[in-house]
């Protein structure tokens, strides 16, 4: 579904991603963990080209993301092509980023109607179904600012799903939430994973990553240090940097 090959990115002299190669297959749930500044959010944003990358490539369903090959070499793709690729991947942000001047329902309709050009009535039906699923049907006419953080994030997940994406990207979806609201959002993501939606989740929630992910990727200093099934990464990590990171975050969790 998604193939990342020798991906690299730098801001001037600062390298943020170093030679990353990953393969994400259909129905797979991948969690990316690592200390802040490890490049995990940047990697996620390279997948739908919200962040352009400098070297290597990302292919989504076989198609090069953000660039196109021409006889004279590789060059940035036209905006229209990149937008078409983005429309097939849903993204959920740390700060929700709902459109504040629209109701919750309008937030869900915006993409399918304005970008995909689907008929409004048809999309509305689907959107109401999604709002029911995330438990926000009664909030459909509310403005995002009147919702709690957890509700906003669930609405944002529904907005992404309204586009009927092939893959979901979550960028620290619970980092901006009050602790008591984290559970409801994780439950929604967990439900989605159980339904077989392929997803890449950048998260600080270790127990969630352990429960939901098929594969865990540990990043540090812009590179993938270790990857494997959660049972291995969390119980018997082989790389000392992974061990050190996990012992630190798990220790903090129980002895803040």
């Amino acid at each position: 579904m998604l193939t990342i090959t020798h991906l690299s990115k730098a801001y001037g002299d600062l390298t943020v991603l170093k030679d990353i190669s990953l393969e994400i297959s259909a129905n797979e749930v991948v969690a990316i963990i690592g200390p802040s500044g490890s490049g995990k959010s940047t990697l996620l944003k390279c997948l739908n080209f919200l962040e352009p990358y400098d070297g290597g490539e990302v292919r989504f369903e076989g198609e090069l993301v953000g660039y196109e090959d021409s006889p004279r070499g590789r060059r940035p793709a036209r905006e229209r092509q990149t937008n078409r690729q983005r429309a097939r991947m849903g993204m959920v942000f740390q700060n929700f980023n709902l459109f504040p001047h629209m109701s919750v329902l309008e937030n869900l309709l915006e993409g399918p109607v304005q970008v995909l050009g689907e008929p409004r009535a048809e999309v509305t039906e689907r959107a109401l179904g999604l709002l029911t699923k995330v438990g926000l049907l009664e909030k459909r006419d509310a403005r995002p600012s009147t919702l709690s953080g957890g509700q906003q994030q669930r609405a944002a997940i529904a907005r992404a799903l309204a586009m009927r994406p092939k893959l979901m990207l979550f960028d620290e979806p619970t980092s901006a939430l009050d602790p008591e609201l984290v559970g409801e959002v994780l439950a929604t993501i967990g439900q989605l994973a159980a339904e077989g939606m392929p997803m890449v989740i950048v998260t600080h929630e270790m127990s969630f990553a352990r429960d939901v992910a098929d594969r865990v990727i540990f990043m540090e200093g812009g590179e993938v240090v270790e990857e494997g099934p959660p049972s291995v990464i969390f119980s018997h990590p082989s790389n000392p940097r992974t061990q050190q990171f996990l012992s630190r975050v798990l220790h903090e969790r129980f002895h803040p």
Binding site: N83, R84, L98
Partner: peptide, 9 residues
């Protein structure tokens, strides 16, 4: 970013 992520021009 949110608008870009849904593929909006």
């Amino acid at each position: 970013m949110a608008a870009k992520s849904i593929g909006m021009s």
